[in-house]
Each structure stands twice: as C-alpha cells, then as structure tokens.
C-alpha cells in the first residue's frame, strides 16, 4: 500500500488528536509520531498529510522533522535500539556493552542502532531502549538474550 493511502486511513484518528488542542498547529508533533509509527519514517507524503491537518506549511513541518532526533526521514530497522551514552551509563562501562551489542547485531539486517543521549534511567545504567521499552542493568549475557528475542 502506498504511503498516501495509509495516511488517509489515519484521518479519523488525526481528527481526534487535532481536536484536543486549542490551536491545531499544536498537533504537529503527535501527528508526526502517528505517521511515523504507521509508515516507518516521515516521508514527504507524511509531511504533506501533517500540513493538511495542522495548517502548518510543509516546509515548516520539514524543519520540525529535522530538529527532533526521534523522527526519521529514512526507515530505521524493524526494531530500533537507542543505546544510552549518558554520563552515568559511561561510568557503568557502557562502551564494552555497546561493542558487544554491535558484534551481536552484525549482519542481522532488521535491527537499527542509535547512540542516544541520556534516556534518564541512570539508576539502571548501562541501559538502552528497544522501540518503546527500557532495558537496564545490561550485561553481555543480557544483551544476547534481548537480541535473540528480537531476531
């Protein structure tokens, strides 16, 4: 299915989101999240769709997409990992775990990895986020278990 068709099917959901805000432009971030969740990235079609709903010119939507780290203009993997590189994770030795994760993921093809700034779960350092979920107190063994489940 092409992106525009998928997006048009989200119109009723978009209408509900826009109605929550006193000015419809405020729905921009939430609509971008919704579009990205459904089509895997924020494509020009998605920007046009958000523009249609918010009245924000598409070029301004593009500015927003490129400003925030969670929006992706190209599809990421089927599963996306954000690995925390904050100070507390560094102190907990995240580099060794990250190296192990990269080795473990080698050649997988369906999982993408991003080195993220502090995800604010420092009490469980070193930690990472797989899609929505936080995984903390990581060890090489724990990485193996998590990645095996993802594959």
């Amino acid at each position: 299915m092409n992106h525009t068709t998928i997006l048009n099917q989200l119109d009723s959901e978009a209408e509900k989101i826009v109605a929550k805000y006193d000015e419809k432009r405020a729905a921009t971030l939430m609509l971008l999240h919704l579009a990205q969740d459904k089509i895997g990235s924020v494509t020009p079609e998605a920007e046009a769709w958000v523009s249609k709903w918010t009245g924000v010119p598409a070029v301004r939507v593009r500015e927003v997409v490129t400003f925030y780290s969670m929006y992706h203009q190209k599809p990421v993997g089927r599963r996306h990992i954000r690995f925390c590189t904050g100070t507390s994770c560094m102190l907990a030795g995240h580099e060794k775990i990250l190296d192990h994760l990269k080795k473990k993921l080698g050649g997988e093809g369906k999982i993408s990895l991003e080195e993220a700034e502090c995800l604010c779960a420092c009490e469980t350092a070193p930690m990472m986020q797989v899609d929505d979920d936080y995984h903390g107190n990581l060890t090489e063994k724990k990485i193996d278990e998590i990645v095996d489940q993802l594959k």
Binding site: V76, G77, E95, L105, G109, S112, L113, E115
Partner: peptide, 12 residues
C-alpha cells in the same frame, strides 16, 4: 582514547 560515534544510526 576511544571515540564514540556522534549522532549516527547504524543499520545491522
């Protein structure tokens, strides 16, 4: 010292 990657997404 080892350098961490800066704002990169790698695909595996």
């Amino acid at each position: 010292a080892r350098i961490s990657k800066f704002e990169t997404i790698s695909k595996f």
